[in-house]
Amino acid sequence: MKQNVGIVDALIRITIGLVILTWSVSKGCSKHSKGFPLLSSLIGAMKVAEGITKFCPIIYIAEKRNSQADINPNNEFNPS
C-alpha cells in the first residue's frame, strides 16, 4: 500500500473525521436516533483511518483510471 495523501491532507482528514465521529456518537446516544448517525460514524471512522494510513482508496482508483486512459486515450481495444 503506497501512501498517496500528504501530511497536511492527512491531518485535515483526521480532524474532520474525528469531528464527524464525535457528532455521530453524540446524536446516536439519543432515544430518537435512526440509521444516519451510524452511517456518519462509519464515514468519520473511514476518514480517520485514511488520515492515519495516508492512503485514500478513491484517489488510488482515480490515479489508476487516469493512467490507463493515458495508455489508450480512445478507450479502444487494440489486440496487437
Rank of each mutant, 00 (worst) to 15 (best):
R65F: 06
S33R: 13
K27R: 14
Q68T: 11
S41N: 08
T53Y: 06
E50P: 00
G35C: 04
S24E: 01
S41C: 11
Y60T: 14
P57F: 11
Q3H: 10
K31D: 00
S30L: 01
S67W: 01
S33Y: 10
S80L: 04
Q3E: 06
W23H: 05
S41G: 13
L21I: 01
L38G: 13
I52V: 15
C29F: 06
L21P: 01
C56V: 09
P37Q: 08
F77Q: 06
F77H: 04
R65E: 13
N74D: 09
I14Q: 05
G44D: 00
F55S: 08
P73K: 13
V25Y: 05
E76A: 04
I12A: 13
P79F: 00
S30I: 02
A62K: 10
P57Y: 12
E76W: 00
G35T: 10
P79R: 02
I61F: 07
V8Q: 03
V5I: 15
K2H: 00
N78M: 07
G44R: 06
S26Y: 06
I61M: 09
F55Y: 14
A62M: 12
R65G: 07
H32A: 12
L39E: 09
F55K: 13
I14G: 02
F36I: 11
L11A: 14
T53W: 03
I58S: 05
N4W: 00
N78K: 14
T22H: 05
L21A: 08
V25Q: 02
N72W: 02
V19M: 09
K54S: 14
L18A: 12
K34A: 12
E76S: 07
